[in-house]
Computed example of a mutant assay.
Amino acid sequence: MSSLRTALLAELRAYVPADARERAMRDRLAAFIASQPRAFERALTIGHVTASAWIVNAARTHALLTHHRKLGKWLQLGGHVDGDPDVRASALREAREESGLRSLRFASEAIYDVDIHAIPARGSEPAHEHFDVRFAFEADGAEPFVVSDESHDLAWVALASLADYGADESVLRLARKTAHL
């Protein structure tokens, strides 16, 4: 087992979840990484590890969300780790690729959140799960962003307005944690 994978497992086991639901997801995520040699590879069709970026402005009043092209809903930025167990680097890479922001910096080096969510079948890709490790970032809310081909749109959304964007419980949980950053 690689040192990055071992370190991630130790960090996940030490991570303190926000509630019982997140605790159950943390435990499943750690067990998945420990038992699946190809956990970080997108080719693992039952599911794979992904990395996300919860990006807030300096005042921590707004989050940058993407209207995801494939899923058709407003979410945090992030994506596949492409075989790399360095989930921090993957979260940062995905955030930069999907937003074009250069002012991104970690709000904390620690894991911010974990989530496991179902991805529906699409084309030849079967339904599967994303085992998502999430990190908090801060960015200059005035810096222009670029909408990538993975998104319909990007927007700085007021945390108080997330429900107006149809935010699901996992995004609302990210927002609730923002006060503790």
Rank of each mutant, 00 (worst) to 15 (best):
A31F: 00
A110H: 00
A10Q: 15
L9W: 08
T6P: 08
A18I: 13
R69N: 11
Y112A: 14
E109G: 12
L77T: 05
G78Y: 11
T61F: 13
L92S: 07
A14R: 13
R5I: 12
I111R: 02
A30K: 03
A110F: 00
H62M: 05
H48V: 01
V114Y: 03
D113L: 11
L12F: 03
T50L: 04
S103N: 06
L4M: 14
G100W: 13
L77R: 10
A18R: 13
W74H: 04
V81R: 02
I55W: 07
A91Q: 07
D86G: 09
I33L: 09
R26S: 15
S52R: 04
V81Q: 01
W74P: 05
R26P: 08
A89Q: 11
V114Q: 09
K73Y: 06
L9D: 15
R96T: 03
Q36L: 01
A24Q: 15
R96D: 01
T61W: 11
D27V: 09
Y15S: 00
L75V: 12
H62Q: 14
A91I: 03
R60N: 01
D113C: 10
Q36K: 09
A51C: 04
F40Y: 13
A7T: 14
S108R: 03
R28C: 08
L29K: 01
S3L: 12
S2L: 10
A107W: 09
R96A: 06
P37R: 13
A30D: 00
M25W: 14
A89I: 12
E97D: 13
P17F: 09
A18T: 08
A63V: 11
H80W: 02
R93C: 08
R88E: 03
A53P: 09
L8Q: 12
R60P: 00
G78E: 06
S108T: 15
V114E: 06
T50V: 07
R42K: 11
R88M: 07
R13P: 05
L75H: 03
V114F: 01
T50M: 05
L75C: 12
A53R: 05
Q76D: 08
G83V: 05
G79F: 04
A63H: 00
R21S: 09
L104G: 04
A34E: 15
Y112M: 03
E22W: 15
A20S: 12
A24G: 14
A59C: 02
H68C: 07
P85I: 06
R69G: 08
L8F: 10
D84I: 05
A59H: 01
G83M: 10
S35E: 15
V49Q: 03
R13L: 06
L75P: 01
R23M: 11
G100S: 11
A110W: 00
V114A: 10
A91N: 05
A59T: 10
V87R: 10
H67N: 13
L65P: 00
P85F: 02
L92H: 11
G79Y: 02
R69E: 15
A59F: 06
T45F: 09
T61N: 02
R88K: 12
L44R: 08
I111Q: 00
A24W: 09
F32L: 11
R88N: 07
H48L: 02
T50C: 07
